[in-house]
Design a protein around this nucleic acid. Sequence first.
DNA 1: ACATTGACTTGTT
DNA 2: CAACAAGCCAATG
Length: 131
Amino acid sequence: MTGPARKAPRARKPVLSKTYQRIYAAVRRIPRGRVATYGDVARLAGMPRQPRLVGYALHATPEGIRLPWHRVVNAQGRISLGRGVAGGELPQRFRLEREGVEFGPNGRIPLDSYRWDPSKPVRRSAKPRRQ
DNA sequence: ACATTGACTTGTT
DNA sequence: CAACAAGCCAATG
């Protein structure tokens, strides 16, 4: 029995590196209706100079895990997904709009209004409600 | 182990 | 605004 034939601990892939897990954890903290830049996420994840890694990690995000990846945009307030793919940014845009994030005429999000500031309490609406 | 690539950022031309 | 370069780290081949 104790045969050597016990299932070897298969080396499945696995385990996302700690780096990735930290990045995903940071992304999950972004509140609904807010956005964060890749640089912000990198900083939240403890890798202040690694915005590229954030993009890499998100691209490698396994499907099936809950992650608000659409709340991550680049430092210019634009969607970085799908460069080279016409309309590739639309799905992300729709998700954000559904959360109340509005885009400017240029397809850019006014970060002054929607960028998440972890040090401040989250408001329900980024724009001053008209009355 | 080496070279290349990448959902980026910032600064310079 | 567009094009380039440097920086910085992990995944891939």
